[in-house]
């Protein structure tokens, strides 16, 4: 159990949790959504600038939450920038499976690096109560780019 804790709270996560990347409100965002985890009161807003060809030119977030949800949002905004919306959808699907401890099958080559990075968050699979913390940012991103104003993890 304590090993699982150490695996969940790795340096990378603690670092992203303490010094989140892309923690800002870009003026030129084309869409945004609020994510809410009613269980713990955590709230995130994800801002995305979607350009030509459904290309994500910028992604950022604001809000407050636990180390896991903030680290996840921080890493996600790094990873999705430069990707197409459809690619982000596919990656979310894989990430969700990782967090649930499900088999993700063969890793698509174009996502190998991203999945490597996201792997640090897969430690939540040992903590079912915390899976929502890891996926909140992604649900919110999904809501933003697909036009839902708000999402909750319920």
């Amino acid at each position: 159990m304590e090993d699982d804790i150490r695996e969940l709270y790795q340096e990378v996560i603690l670092d992203h949790g303490k010094n989140p990347r892309n923690f800002r409100h870009p003026e030129d965002a084309t869409c945004e959504a609020n994510g809410n985890n009613p269980l713990c009161g955590d709230k995130l807003t994800v801002f995305v600038k979607v350009g030509a060809d459904e290309n994500i030119e910028d992604a950022a977030f604001e809000g407050r939450g636990c180390a896991i949800s903030v680290a996840s949002a921080s890493m996600m905004t790094n990873i999705v920038t430069g990707k197409k919306v459809s690619e982000v959808d596919a990656l979310f699907d894989i990430f969700h499976k990782m967090c649930m401890g499900e088999d993700i099958g063969e890793t698509p080559e174009e996502f190998e690096d991203d999945i490597d990075k996201l792997m640090v968050l897969s430690g939540v699979k040992q903590f079912p109560m915390r899976v929502k913390c890891a996926t909140l940012a992604w649900h919110t991103m999904n809501a933003a780019v697909h036009g839902d104003a708000a999402t909750t993890t319920e």
Binding site: E2, I5, C40, G65, R130, C133
Partner: peptide, 23 residues
């Protein structure tokens, strides 16, 4: 300071301590 209640709850559970974290 520096530790969200949810993280506190999860981590101290690994030491057998049950507290409530949330609103």
């Amino acid at each position: 300071d520096g530790a969200h209640p949810h993280d506190v709850g999860t981590i101290i559970d690994s030491k057998g301590v049950a507290v409530r974290a949330g609103h």
